[in-house]
Computed example of a mutant assay.
Amino acid sequence: MEKLVFRFENGQRKLAGATQLVGVVSSGNLEVLVQVADLQNACEIEINTAAMGFGAIWQAVMHDFNQRWQLADASIAINDMGATPAVVSLRLDQAIEACLEQAP
Protein backbone atom coordinates (compact mmCIF):
# COMPACT_ATOMS: atom_id res chain seq x y z
CA MET A 1 0.00 0.00 0.00
CA GLU A 2 1.12 3.51 -0.76
CA LYS A 3 0.02 6.53 1.30
CA LEU A 4 -0.24 9.96 -0.29
CA VAL A 5 -1.26 13.17 1.46
CA PHE A 6 -2.31 16.41 -0.22
CA ARG A 7 -3.19 19.72 1.44
CA PHE A 8 -4.84 22.64 -0.28
CA GLU A 9 -4.84 25.99 1.53
CA ASN A 10 -7.30 28.91 1.46
CA GLY A 11 -10.50 27.03 0.65
CA GLN A 12 -13.66 29.05 0.09
CA ARG A 13 -16.48 26.50 0.60
CA LYS A 14 -17.23 25.01 4.01
CA LEU A 15 -19.34 21.90 4.41
CA ALA A 16 -22.20 21.85 6.90
CA GLY A 17 -20.83 19.27 9.32
CA ALA A 18 -22.14 16.16 7.63
CA THR A 19 -19.87 13.12 7.44
CA GLN A 20 -20.24 11.16 4.22
CA LEU A 21 -18.95 7.76 3.13
CA VAL A 22 -19.42 6.78 -0.49
CA GLY A 23 -18.17 3.88 -2.57
CA VAL A 24 -16.98 0.42 -1.67
CA VAL A 25 -13.40 -0.79 -1.42
CA SER A 26 -13.20 -3.70 -3.83
CA SER A 27 -11.28 -4.65 -6.93
CA GLY A 28 -11.05 -1.58 -9.16
CA ASN A 29 -13.02 0.69 -6.87
CA LEU A 30 -12.58 2.94 -3.84
CA GLU A 31 -14.32 4.53 -0.88
CA VAL A 32 -14.27 8.19 0.08
CA LEU A 33 -14.87 9.50 3.59
CA VAL A 34 -15.47 13.24 3.98
CA GLN A 35 -15.46 14.91 7.40
CA VAL A 36 -15.45 18.47 8.67
CA ALA A 37 -12.24 19.34 10.56
CA ASP A 38 -10.67 22.52 11.87
CA LEU A 39 -7.90 22.89 9.28
CA GLN A 40 -7.72 26.70 9.15
CA ASN A 41 -9.55 26.84 5.80
CA ALA A 42 -7.52 24.02 4.27
CA CYS A 43 -8.61 20.75 2.72
CA GLU A 44 -6.52 17.66 3.49
CA ILE A 45 -6.77 14.50 1.43
CA GLU A 46 -5.15 11.25 2.56
CA ILE A 47 -5.03 8.42 0.04
CA ASN A 48 -4.23 4.79 0.78
CA THR A 49 -3.86 2.96 -2.50
CA ALA A 50 -2.92 -0.51 -3.66
CA ALA A 51 -1.68 0.94 -6.97
CA MET A 52 1.94 1.92 -6.35
CA GLY A 53 3.80 4.59 -8.33
CA PHE A 54 0.90 6.74 -9.51
CA GLY A 55 1.61 9.79 -7.34
CA ALA A 56 1.71 12.22 -10.27
CA ILE A 57 -1.69 11.05 -11.51
CA TRP A 58 -3.18 11.31 -8.02
CA GLN A 59 -1.76 14.81 -7.70
CA ALA A 60 -3.38 15.87 -10.99
CA VAL A 61 -6.76 14.40 -10.00
CA MET A 62 -6.63 16.02 -6.54
CA HIS A 63 -5.62 19.38 -8.03
CA ASP A 64 -8.57 19.20 -10.43
CA PHE A 65 -10.90 18.28 -7.55
CA ASN A 66 -9.63 21.23 -5.50
CA GLN A 67 -10.13 23.61 -8.41
CA ARG A 68 -13.75 22.49 -8.75
CA TRP A 69 -14.75 22.59 -5.08
CA GLN A 70 -12.31 24.90 -3.18
CA LEU A 71 -13.17 23.19 0.13
CA ALA A 72 -12.28 24.68 3.50
CA ASP A 73 -12.00 22.73 6.77
CA ALA A 74 -12.53 19.39 5.04
CA SER A 75 -10.70 16.15 5.77
CA ILE A 76 -10.99 13.50 3.07
CA ALA A 77 -9.79 9.91 3.32
CA ILE A 78 -9.63 7.71 0.23
CA ASN A 79 -9.11 3.95 0.33
CA ASP A 80 -8.33 2.78 -3.19
CA MET A 81 -8.07 -0.63 -4.82
CA GLY A 82 -7.05 0.52 -8.30
CA ALA A 83 -9.86 2.84 -9.39
CA THR A 84 -9.38 4.83 -12.58
CA PRO A 85 -9.01 8.63 -12.36
CA ALA A 86 -12.55 9.03 -13.72
CA VAL A 87 -13.97 6.85 -10.94
CA VAL A 88 -11.94 8.75 -8.34
CA SER A 89 -13.36 12.07 -9.57
CA LEU A 90 -16.87 10.65 -9.67
CA ARG A 91 -16.70 9.33 -6.09
CA LEU A 92 -15.21 12.57 -4.76
CA ASP A 93 -17.92 14.65 -6.42
CA GLN A 94 -20.57 12.20 -5.19
CA ALA A 95 -19.35 12.56 -1.60
CA ILE A 96 -19.27 16.37 -1.68
CA GLU A 97 -22.68 16.61 -3.33
CA ALA A 98 -24.09 14.30 -0.63
CA CYS A 99 -22.62 16.60 2.05
CA LEU A 100 -24.17 19.65 0.41
CA GLU A 101 -27.58 17.93 0.11
CA GLN A 102 -27.59 17.35 3.88
CA ALA A 103 -26.83 20.98 4.68
CA PRO A 104 -29.58 22.69 6.70
Rank of each mutant, 00 (worst) to 15 (best):
K14C: 09
K14S: 13
L15Y: 05
A16L: 09
A16R: 07
A16H: 11
G17H: 03
G17Q: 04
A18Q: 07
A18K: 08
T19F: 09
T19A: 13
T19E: 15
T19R: 13
Q20T: 14
Q20K: 14
L21D: 14
G23I: 02
G23N: 05
G23S: 05
G23R: 04
S26T: 14
S26A: 14
S26Y: 10
S27T: 13
S27K: 13
N29E: 12
L30M: 08
E31C: 12
E31R: 13
V32S: 08
V32M: 12
L33A: 07
L33M: 12
L33T: 11
V34L: 08
Q35Y: 05
Q35T: 10
Q35S: 13
V36N: 11
V36H: 10
A37Q: 09
A37W: 06
A37M: 06
A37P: 03
Q40L: 10
Q40C: 10
A42W: 00
A42M: 03
C43E: 04
C43D: 02
I45P: 00
I45H: 01
E46Y: 05
E46V: 07
I47F: 02
N48L: 12
N48F: 08
T49R: 00
A50T: 15
A50M: 12
A50Q: 14
A51K: 13
M52L: 15
G53W: 07
F54D: 13
F54W: 12
F54I: 15
G55Y: 08
A56Y: 09
I57L: 15
I57N: 12
I57F: 10
W58E: 06
W58N: 03
A60N: 14
V61I: 10
V61K: 02
M62P: 04
M62E: 11
H63G: 12
F65Y: 00
F65A: 00
F65D: 00
Q67G: 10
Q67C: 11
Q67I: 07
Q67E: 13
Q67H: 07
R68G: 01
R68P: 00
W69I: 02
Q70W: 01
Q70P: 00
Q70N: 06
Q70I: 00
L71A: 03
A72V: 01
A72Q: 03
D73F: 03
A74W: 02
A74V: 04
S75N: 11
I76H: 00
I76S: 03
A77Y: 07
A77T: 13
